[in-house]
């Protein structure tokens, strides 16, 4: 099964994107597999339940890899892929060992994955920092890569998309609002291309 890693800085909306994209595909519940460095276990949630539990304004709500299986309509049946949500990255040295280990897990996955969705905060379009540039550089190594500019509903500037396309000239940039599930059509096209 193809795996797609959802990666990005902390608090850019990776988990909400993952869950609401599943909802956009028509799923009402998800089985989330939690993989930390030691064990893995799965649990089913309704999408709303999962959003209530795992989406928060505070940083580092996701502390391990959390994957869900997406089923996309394909011909007369469906095709599946694994969407892996990861712990958000911070540019500096984080004081909490557990968070650093979780970020280590994210980096290990970045090294292994073939398909990557790099989530950025769309409202920060004018200030793309080193960490996002580094991740975008990684995008050149993987088979498929796209920048998802989240929180697009909050973006005021009409030049925002041009700014982003300038900052990520070689990459596909998709503006979305995970909260309002807008822009997901292009994401679905990306996933279909991966499959």
């Amino acid at each position: 099964m193809k795996q797609i890693l959802v990666v990005g800085k902390t608090n850019v909306g990776k988990t909400l994107f993952t869950l609401n994209f599943a909802a956009y595909l028509g799923m009402t519940s998800v089985q989330i597999t939690f993989r930390d460095i030691r064990t893995s276990h799965s649990k089913s949630f309704s999408i709303q339940e999962a959003i209530d539990l795992f989406v928060s304004d505070s940083e580092h709500q996701t502390k391990c890899l959390q994957s869900i299986i997406l089923a996309l309509p394909w011909g007369k049946g469906t095709k599946q892929c694994e969407l892996i949500d990861s712990t958000g990255l911070v540019p500096n040295i984080h004081p909490d060992l557990l968070i650093r280990q979780a970020m280590g897990q994210t980096l290990t996955m970045v090294r292994q994955i073939r398909h990557m969705l790099h989530i950025i905060d769309g409202t920060q379009h004018a200030q793309i920092d080193d960490l996002d540039r580094q991740l975008a550089n990684y995008g050149t190594y993987v088979t498929s890569y796209a920048v998802i500019a989240n929180k697009w509903d909050l973006v005021q500037s009409s030049h925002a998309l041009q700014d982003l396309k300038k900052a990520f000239p070689k990459q596909l940039v998709i503006p979305v609002s995970s909260l309002h599930k807008s822009g997901f059509r292009e994401v679905r096209t990306y996933v279909r291309n991966v499959l």
Binding site: I93, R100, G104
Partner: peptide
């Protein structure tokens, strides 16, 4: 591992 041990930042590791 060095990043996890707090010796280097995520940026440096990447």
């Amino acid at each position: 591992l060095q990043m996890e041990q707090g010796k280097i930042s995520v940026n440096e590791a990447l």
